[in-house]
Design a protein around this nucleic acid. Structure first.
Lengths: 204, 204
DNA sequence: GCTCCTTAGATAGTTTTACTCTCCAATATT
DNA sequence: AATATTGGAGAGTAAAACTATCTAAGGAGC
């Protein structure tokens, strides 16, 4: 298909797609001359993934680019998710290093849960920095809440990982990123709904 | 304290604080003349909350402003969280209305869980739109995953809500917003760490 | 072959968000 | 009285994500 069809199929404008090509988010089509190129279903899928990662998961384009590079270079679920997590850092703009106390608390959590993580893992840093932020707000969270979160996420993670590992590795690498990033709003929305219902029950 | 001290105490620059004042994110200090005003601890707290909501929870300033208005006007946990959720919509930029099929699936989920929610609740819309997005990515999620998420979030929500209701209502309204929004990265980071560990276990 | 239309590729312009800077007159401080 | 700081207002800036324009080269229809 040509550019015009790619635009209608993906629901994006031609200038936007050109912009994504320039930014390295979308691979070039197959050139059929100096001013012509054809695109395939893979390009449509890629565009839909880009929009899901920006609109649904709330990632910035630069982060999307790095995540996509990770997809293209990964050889397994573990690779893909690890790569995505490495690029992600935090959802916000935090960059300051976490306090030693919070890092120790995260290490203790991993120890209690029997979880292993490489040195300087970005999610561990996010965890520690968020603990710092909550302390500064005079709203510290206890280890029991962290353990509760871990206990809640363990079966979720088990189901999510195992449900993806049925297909072949190549396709499942993309599925890994979708399962991790695009499903996040699902989990958060359900948490918020649950909170409101608990709150309503206690109120009356 | 004066502006200069407020700046050092909050870690923000004077122009940034002036900007927040202009944008209605921070209430004015007590004027002691035409060109002087004093600020108190409440201002320091408010600034720290603003930075946590932007840097940690990833909210835009306009959303922060609406959430803060909700805090100031709320009379209970339920009010505060409900107001925050109303302003939030989705983390990304989604605005299109969800499909009828997804809305029906969300209604069925609420029914199965015994949860009630007002008409057109924003989190229900986020849920439905995310289901649509996952369908378009040819990565549909089943009702069993939604139920698993709900089962995982139920005890989490119960703990979070009940642990806040110990103090008086006034202060707990702010705690409600912090507990909901600022703790989100904690939950997501722990989910990602859990996923990596499950993945590592299955890999070897 | 000729005309018209679309396209690749490049450059420049726009919009939004979140600041950051500059002024000015009025105070405080010294 | 001299100097420094502040409140308030307006303009300027930087980054992100598009959006528009331009040019020359094809290709499609006649």
């Amino acid at each position: 298909m040509w550019m015009a069809e790619l635009a209608t199929r993906s629901g994006l404008s031609v200038p936007t797609i050109k912009y994504y090509l320039r930014e390295g988010l979308l691979p070039s089509g197959t050139a059929t001359g100096a001013t012509r190129a054809t695109y395939d279903e893979e390009h449509v899928r890629r565009l839909r993934l880009i929009r899901a990662l920006t609109d649904v998961a709330g990632l910035r384009l630069e982060t999307v680019r790095q995540v996509l590079e990770g997809i293209d270079g990964a050889g397994s679920w573990h690779d893909a998710v690890g790569s995505a997590h490495t690029r992600l850092g935090s959802p916000g703009t935090q960059t300051a290093p976490p306090s030693a106390a919070s890092v120790a608390r995260v290490d203790a959590l991993l120890e209690r849960q029997g979880w292993e993580l490489g040195e300087d893992h970005p999610q561990a840093a996010v965890l520690a920095r968020t603990l710092d932020a909550l302390d500064e707000l005079e709203h510290p969270v206890g280890d029991e809440l962290l353990d509760l979160y871990a206990a809640a996420m363990r079966p979720v993670a088990e189901h999510e990982v195992s449900s993806i590992r049925v297909g072949e590795v190549e396709a499942s690498v993309e599925a890994a990123v979708i399962g991790t990033l695009v499903q996040e709003p699902l989990l958060l929305a359900i948490r918020r709904i649950a909170q409101e219902n608990v709150s309503r029950t206690l109120e009356s």
